[in-house]
Design a binder for these strands. Structure first.
Length: 246
DNA sequence: AATACACTCAACCGCGTTGAG
DNA sequence: GCTCAACGCGGTTGAGTGTAT
């Protein structure tokens, strides 16, 4: 199906909020479905990309740590440009982020070291050369444990500033500084790490209380197939959504 | 202060894979 | 087994930003 007037280019704040809302509602799998029901004039592909690379609350932002850098080098040496595979070993980092990082930082570095005849990669920028695995050619490099409690977690590094600002301005959340802001936002959306992948059927989310029982689903003309009604306007029927984008 | 150049990263594109019908 | 739509991945692009001259 060819989508007419599909939007491209940078995402707006409202689109982001809307996408977060619908992913929260339906999980992060059915991207074409989400693209359709959300009313966003985006392809499912575009929605997925935006979520995976930017909106996902599990993302970690900020500079790569020396350990992460080292791990990327090790894994790239082992797997080549299998970015998504490498990304799975670095919690909170996306394939796109690692790919970009590699291209801008590490590729040059690795090439230079190769020229100099170094037999294995190791991060020169890593001051942590005394790490227990230093010099090891072991293929199983333990990733630095990256948790939401580390100092440079996504929440703490000011990701999604727009949501923060918007929350301050439009939701009325009282946020004093940068800490906890995203927690507050996602908490507000009842959207915490760890349950964002839940299929909507199993989400014990009060968000469903908002839905009228018979407004989401309808039968097709033959009456033999249920389908989800377009919900572009439904987003606006939630009080807090209107508050957010008003 | 203005300009050029370098860098970063969000987003798009094309293609291969997967799974439902 | 075949077809087609959706998904996921890797490569690439280009706008925005930073830095050097």
């Amino acid at each position: 199906m060819v989508k007419e007037d599909t939007k491209k280019g940078p995402w707006t704040e409202q689109e982001d909020v809307q996408l977060v809302f619908y992913v929260k509602l339906f999980g992060d799998r059915r991207w074409d479905f989400i693209a359709n029901v959300s009313g966003l004039k985006r392809t499912g592909k575009s929605c997925r990309l935006r979520w995976v690379n930017y909106l996902n609350p599990g993302l970690k932002r900020g500079k790569m740590t020396p350990n992460e850098e080292k791990l990327v080098l090790e894994l790239h040496k082992k797997w080549g440009n299998r970015w998504s595979r490498i990304a799975r070993k670095l919690p909170g980092r996306t394939d796109n982020e690692i790919k970009n990082y590699w291209r801008t930082h590490l590729r040059k570095e690795a090439q230079e070291k190769k020229k100099k005849g170094m037999s294995s990669y190791s991060s020169s920028s890593s001051s942590n050369s005394s790490s227990s695995s230093s010099g090891s050619k072991s293929p199983t490099v333990e990733p630095t444990p990256v948790t939401e409690n580390t100092e440079c977690s996504f929440h703490d590094t000011g990701g999604l500033d727009f949501l923060v600002d918007m929350s301050k301005k439009k939701i009325g959340l009282e946020i004093e500084d940068g800490s906890n802001t995203m927690d507050e936002i996602f908490s507000y959306l009842d959207f915490k790490e760890g349950n964002c992948n839940l299929p909507y059927q199993t989400m014990a989310s009060p968000i469903w209380d908002y839905f009228p029982n018979d407004s989401l689903w309808a039968m097709d003309e033959e009456g033999n197939k249920m389908f989800m009604q377009p919900m572009g306007d439904l987003f606006h029927s939630f009080p807090f959504c209107n508050n957010m984008i008003a």
